[in-house]
Design a protein around this nucleic acid. Structure first.
Lengths: 198, 198
DNA sequence: TTGACAAGTGACCTTTCGTTCACTATAATA
DNA sequence: TATTATAGTGAACGAAAGGTCACTTGTCAA
């Protein structure tokens, strides 16, 4: 038996919550998708809400480990073209990785209901990105790659449009390729406007 | 009796759907909020889904009437400062008008489930805004107020960050004032970067 | 070998859901 | 005045929801 059923339940919950939301998901279906019967789930979690809370715990931890810690910060590009490349790698990953997509969707669907989801959503969609790029742009300004300007403002101006495109991919996956092209076009526009020749 | 109960049901549905989503809303509560008993609702709509469809019809019509038609386009500002003013009026309205807020929230919550909601969400959050500002920026470039550039790209670069702030207001209403300040700061940053002196 | 425990089953419970229906009150119409 | 359509009531229904429990099964330690 055993065999990480708890983790499999959480994975299935992420999948179902991200498609139908918390209220639109029922334990029967969730169990069935794992080849379990409903009551089996209650051997691992005491309630539907407990599954939700554990899933949020996991998402918060994952976010802190991968985006919140100083070690995992992306290296600062040493050229404007490097900024485009790095950006497109991040975009490509984030719109193709199923787990990341589902995490965004869940946060989108539960942001008005759950205080922790709301908080994580703002980090995920807004402040987390601007924080990362504020550091990057500060460095790039110091190196003379970008015009001297308010790095926070530039980070916001850079990440928000890309974030909007990512959300569009979540909503309309068939437009993913087009969105990626748009993201690259925007990135090149950005370095043309803010980049510094030397 | 009579007295526009159908419209009151739709208004209540908008309110509840925007807070708890379609699946998280039940007819009992909805009816009670109108001083009705559950079965009374079924004199006006044949099912919960019929309420949802009528609400979406209403939202689509409302959007087409107010943002989609050529007549309701905002007048092109005749100065850079005028662009900031016009933008801030739009922002101020959109983050304070309850009906508009609830419409955005509903589209956010149902975008992955309902094809029409998905389509309207992309219009509301992305393409609708860039279309409007593409026209405005084209005019402003012609008048020499903005540097010649790709007006679609500028419209996207301008509206996406503001849209992100609006979404943050929906999520965390207590940060509305701060978001408005950020929006104005961003708008001023934008005219400083792209504006043309003459 | 046995005992204990974790993991999974299937029947069952209660509550809540969306929906229906027979009925009543009201207001307009013929 | 009699009729009819409209709006609303309250009881009831079947389905589905979340959750419980006695029971079985497989695994491992003593």
């Amino acid at each position: 038996m055993a065999n990480g059923t708890k983790e499999r339940i959480l994975a299935a919950a992420l999948e179902m919550f991200s498609q139908n939301g918390y209220a639109g998901t029922n334990i029967r279906e969730l169990s069935a998708s794992l080849g379990l019967v409903k009551s089996g789930v209650y051997k691992h979690f005491e309630s539907k809400e407990a599954i939700w809370n554990a899933l949020l715990d996991q998402m918060i931890t994952y976010y802190a480990d991968h985006f919140g810690s100083a070690e995992h910060l992306p290296t600062v590009p040493d050229s404007l073209e490097g900024l485009v490349t790095m950006t497109m790698q991040m975009v490509y990953f984030t719109v193709h990785d199923e787990k990341v997509i589902m995490t965004r969707k869940v946060l989108t669907l539960e942001q008005f209901r759950d205080a922790r989801a709301r908080e994580l959503a703002t980090k995920h969609f807004l402040t987390g990105l601007t924080d990362i790029f504020t550091r990057i742009f500060t460095s790039m300004m110091d190196k003379g790659l970008l015009r001297k300007d308010n790095p926070e403002m530039l980070a916001f101006a850079y990440t928000a449009p890309i974030s909007a495109l990512i959300h569009m991919c979540d909503r309309e996956p068939e437009k993913t390729e087009e969105a990626i092209r748009q993201a690259e076009a925007f990135s090149r526009h950005f370095i043309r406007v803010y980049g510094q020749e030397d």
